[in-house]
Amino acid sequence: MSGMLQGKTALVTGGAGGIGTAICTRFVREGAEVVALDISPLPESSQGAEQVQCDITSEHQVMDMAAGLSRRWSRLDILVNAAGIEIEKTIEDTTLEEWNRIFAINVTGMFLVSKHVLPLLRKSDGASIVNFGSYDGFIADPGLAAYCATKGAVHALTRAMACDHGPEGIRVNAVCPGYVDTPMLQSFFGDGGDIESLQQAVRDVHPMKTYGRPEDIANLVNWLASNEARYASGQLWIMDGGLSAQVQQMRL
């Protein structure tokens, strides 16, 4: 059986995270050769991707990684910028150090990795970059100020990269997940009281009455990475179970 990504090469940042792991697993299943970047080891559930240790906030580490990649592969077809962290604070409680750290990972890391693998992406005959935005880049969750700001930056960077590198045959899109069942979400729920009732309440706010699984997001990333999406570029793809389609749900 020939997969949707047969013969393609893919680099996934944040490949050990909840969504990153699901993407790597899906890509391998679709026939891609996958390198997962992360500073943490890949979880046991990750199958078939090869890990490269890389701190994407360090330009020399990213340059070393890119050099290694170009020795290994003659071209790169897919780059997924999935590395990201969340800081659960208002701006008043956020220190400058925390602010700089979340921008370093969520935005600067995306810039550095994209910048240094561009030469390899240009050698593909149909490259696709998928950045991780968020529905929080459109509307705010309380107490996530810096995170919301990084995701707004990602959305703007996505459109800028799509304009600049479209003529070189590189498509650039962002996926904007809503609530997805990952360690990051569990942490967000962490101190909110009875987690079971909280999670049920959260499900109930979604028109689909559930939140997403990492595999749901991987389905979209897989499509954007594949040749089926050859005309898709410069867009922000929200996937949130309908959450942001609604006006705030007053409980009448």
Partner: peptide, 13 residues
């Protein structure tokens, strides 16, 4: 500011 905020506000639950 209603639509600037997510419809899902865990603080309300």
């Amino acid at each position: 500011g209603l639509t600037a905020a997510s419809p899902l506000n865990p603080g309300l639950f």
